[in-house]
Design a protein around this nucleic acid. Structure first.
Lengths: 142, 142
DNA sequence: TCTAGTTGTAATAAAGAAAGTTACAACAAA
DNA sequence: TTTGTTGTAACTTTCTTTATTACAACTAGA
């Protein structure tokens, strides 16, 4: 199972806001045009980013902006903002293993810390990448 | 989005085979009892593990066994066996970003290597954990 | 050889998540 | 007041996961 495209979409949106901030009012329709995604979906993601303090959205007049320095916005911040993971756990466990079986009874105790190590390795790497890195490479390529 | 429970299920199944190998014929029904999962699902996962060379399953007479040393079976082996990820990519990208937009045109070039770093960090951690670690802790707890 | 138990697999259903779409009230600036 | 935008609800479509039933193919042992 893959991590949903909301994450790459959110990064794309933040990059767009930054690239076009001086020349355009960056509305959900504008962003929908660049991402090729439905404007309502864009607005939902903007809402999640806003709740996490990663964007500001002008009600009524329209347009989004980024209120923080880009090197303070990590991929982990974005991931946590848009990827609503149950209990914050990356791995989904099969429900109700048989407590009458010595393996079933202990499987959670055995695996939980190991799965958490894997999740943490991924999150650590996510937190090492920022929107500043994205913008640097984007500007190189433009 | 979470990684499907097939992974934890597969680890549970391998642990069961190992714990009960001397005392029981470990059939899909037996495993279904311990995991509390439908026997057909268990057989599907056994099929995937078999295709990856991680178990052997006796056709007809029934029963599964592990043909490799447990320290040679990493979580990454199991993950790759059961988690059928599209193109092997952890992150799902939004389709067809607008090539007429400077951001949309370059978003893949900008993100692909960064996303791969995250995926690799996760896979490296997965490959550092083996079924031997699982069995050691399981035996401690039993 | 026959029987009993098991595997492999197809077909189908049920449930949940993701993404698209339409519609519209609330809002703010000109 | 008009115009364009946001926030959100409601509904749909599509896809994935898991469950379930059914059964042919298979093997060991009686």
């Amino acid at each position: 199972m893959q991590i949903s495209s909301r994450f790459t979409l959110a990064v794309h949106i933040l990059a767009c806001i930054e690239v076009f901030k001086d020349d355009y009012k960056v509305t959900s329709d504008f962003l929908a045009g660049s991402t090729n995604v439905n404007p309502v979906i864009v607005r939902k993601i903007l809402g999640q980013l806003k709740a996490a303090g990663l964007v500001e959205v002008a009600r009524g007049s329209g347009g989004a902006s980024v209120p923080k320095p880009l090197n303070k916005i990590s991929f982990l911040d974005i991931y946590n903002a848009v990827e609503c993971i149950e209990n914050g756990e990356l791995f989904h466990f099969h429900e109700n293993p048989n407590a009458a079986c010595p393996v079933g009874k202990n499987i959670h105790m055995v695996l939980d810390d190991k799965l958490m190590r894997v999740q943490k390795a991924m999150e650590d790497e996510l937190s090492s990448i920022t929107m500043e890195d994205v913008m640097q490479k984007t500007r190189e390529l433009i």
